[in-house]
């Protein structure tokens, strides 16, 4: 089975994240880049599927040169090879144009199954899996906490408020995963050494037949018009218990519409 895992480099959530003042896009130099956490679960699931069914795991990422760090991490976990879609023309692409560019790259690379995290910790749109499936004309199985493949049929389980959905489809397909699905392995030292020797192919937009007028900041359907720094945290409210502490706490919660 030919599995492609889409991974994204995002600013470390533990550091202060900033937007650029010139074009309102993410300031990638302001914070350390890390692998989007949910994508690690996607890599783990792809590796498990490969271990069970054979085949090959290819990492696909779209991002600037710095994103090779993320590729190396996925390769160190055990993926076989990587494709890095990198072009200045892609800067500022929104979810819609990203899904177009990624779909073009996926068509070029070829796949039986595409696996990705259900959302990224930076933009948090959570729509890429659905958009990709539409663009590729294949089934979408989103928010999976369990994946089973049997021949050309794929089944996922999705937790809902009332239990879980079982969703079945025929390959090829796009699956997005949630953090309950597995426990991602740590890249082993041997994996880190081996990653240096694994093939990484870099694609410019022309290599993936991507139309430059459909990507980048100018082509984005959504626009960041303005932004402001998060306000400093306000001082908390202290409820003094004079026998009526419970009632006062309840009043406070009600005033904030928690109850």
């Amino acid at each position: 089975m030919n599995i492609v895992v889409c991974v994204k480099q995002v600013p470390d959530t533990a550091t202060e994240r900033k937007l650029r003042s010139d074009d309102n896009t993410l300031d990638r130099d302001a914070a350390d880049g890390v692998v989007n956490e949910l994508d690690e679960y996607a890599v783990e699931e792809a590796l498990k599927l490969k271990e069970a069914h054979g085949g090959e795991v290819t990492v696909l990422t779209m991002g600037p040169g710095k994103a090779t760090e993320t590729i190396r991490k996925a390769l160190a976990m055990g993926a076989d090879k990587a494709v890095h879609l990198s072009d200045d023309a892609l800067h500022g692409s929104d979810a819609l144009s990203t899904s177009y560019a990624m779909a073009q790259a996926l068509n070029k690379v070829g796949f039986d199954l595409v696996v990705l995290g259900s959302e990224s910790t930076d933009a948090r749109t959570g729509v890429l899996a659905a958009m990709l499936a539409e663009r590729l004309g294949v089934a979408q199985l989103t928010l999976a906490n369990k994946v089973d493949v049997d021949g050309t049929s794929i089944t996922i389980q999705r937790i809902t408020d009332y239990g879980y959905d079982r969703v079945e489809a025929t390959l090829p397909a796009v699956v997005s995963v949630v953090e309950k699905i597995n426990e991602p392995r740590y890249p082993s030292f041997k994996g880190i050494m081996a990653a240096k020797k694994k093939p990484v192919e870099t694609l410019a937009i022309g290599d993936a037949s991507i139309d430059p007028s459909q990507v980048g900041l100018a082509a984005a359907w959504s626009e960041v018009v303005d932004f402001a720094a998060a306000p400093p945290r306000a001082a908390g409210t202290i409820v003094k218990d004079e026998g009526d502490g419970g009632a006062k706490a309840a009043e406070f919660l009600a005033s904030k519409k928690f109850i």
């Binding site: 190396r72 160190a76 740590y186 030292f189 880190i192 240096k196």
Partner: peptide, 12 residues
């Protein structure tokens, strides 16, 4: 490579 090894152990 040394920095990657450090960050892996830190993460563990």
């Amino acid at each position: 490579e040394e920095r990657e090894i450090r960050s892996t152990v830190r993460r563990v």
